[in-house]
């Protein structure tokens, strides 16, 4: 069943039809979300009542546009804040980890490597509750012993950032390691021979080489953080990131405003996805 093997016409036709149906199945849910962002009605459903931009720009109730909706705008702000810190932290730690596992030898290396992979196979909700339980223990312990309340470790943005960081770092590490593995170490040795210090060699030779992977890991980390739901749900305090705000709205019943936010998210995700694929392609050519 490869092109060089003759196949009956009917089989080819059925197969191609199946593939088309599959892609329809993939795209239709996203398509309807996008289309109904422009429906001039109170619910994102048929009948179609005409085209409008109200769900984006209108400043009056009941059709409050998302750009004037303070809870949604705040949610986006909170999500951007969280995603920024998760990205910075996970790319930094991911880079350290990549150098550690690709370049160094140390006791328990294999054990630590498995441990490093582990967060990927722990369900997100469990990561969330374990962190919730542990931070509570720490806060109570510190309060009992020192009489000081570590307010920032109560459910809230610090915990959300730590919770997301705890598994996104694994992904960042894997992305960066994959590129570091392909690096020709003799380039670094040449720099050392020419009199550069170890740090200068890494900074001027190795890090520029890693740049596509660092950006790629950053994009993935940013998106995963922005879209994370499970871990965030357990750790969230009074400042809700966008996914939590949207989830609460969705449970109450949806208006096309949700479609409008979703469309915005899709556009941003698509741009980031294409950027990341482009970065990877460049990586492949070198």
């Amino acid at each position: 069943m490869i092109p060089s093997i003759p196949q009956s016409r009917a089989f080819k036709g059925v197969y191609a039809a199946y593939i088309s149906v599959f892609f329809l199945y993939l795209l239709i849910p996203l398509l309807v979300v996008a289309v109904f962002a422009f429906n001039d009605a109170m619910f994102p459903s048929l009948p179609w009542k005409g085209f409008t931009f109200d769900w984006f720009f209108s400043s009056t109730e009941p059709k409050l546009g998302i750009f004037h909706d303070s809870t949604i705008m705040e949610g986006i702000g909170v999500s951007l804040f969280v995603a920024f810190w998760v990205t910075v932290l996970s790319v930094f730690v991911g880079t350290c980890n990549a150098f550690l596992f690709e370049r160094k030898n140390f006791p328990f290396k294999n054990f630590l490597y498995v441990l490093m992979i582990l967060p990927l196979v722990i369900p997100g909700i469990i990561l969330g509750i374990s962190m919730l339980v542990f931070s509570n223990t720490v806060v109570n312990g510190v309060e009992n012993v020192f009489g000081y309340e570590m307010e920032f470790l109560r459910p809230g943005l610090v915990l959300v950032i730590l919770g997301q960081f705890s598994f996104i770092t694994t992904i960042a590490t894997l992305v960066i390691s994959a590129r570091l593995r392909k690096f020709d170490i003799s380039l670094e040795e040449a720099a050392l021979n020419l009199g550069a210090s170890h740090l200068t060699a890494v900074r001027t030779i190795t890090l520029p080489y890693l740049k596509p992977a660092l950006f790629g890991a950053g994009i993935v980390a940013f998106l995963m953080s922005f879209e994370n739901f499970n871990t965030t749900l357990m750790l969230v305090g009074s400042d809700a990131p966008l996914t939590i705000t949207m989830f609460d709205r969705l449970k109450e019943g949806s208006t096309p405003a949700l479609n409008a936010v979703s469309l915005l998210l899709m556009i941003v995700s698509a741009i980031l996805a294409i950027t990341s694929i482009f970065l990877q392609r460049e990586k492949g050519q070198k």
Binding site: L31, V33, P44, F226, E227, F229, S262, S269
Partner: peptide, 14 residues
């Protein structure tokens, strides 16, 4: 690449 929430929302509309 699109949030799981958005994808699920799409299925709800359908």
């Amino acid at each position: 690449w699109v949030s799981e929430l958005v994808r699920t929302f799409g299925w709800m509309i359908l």
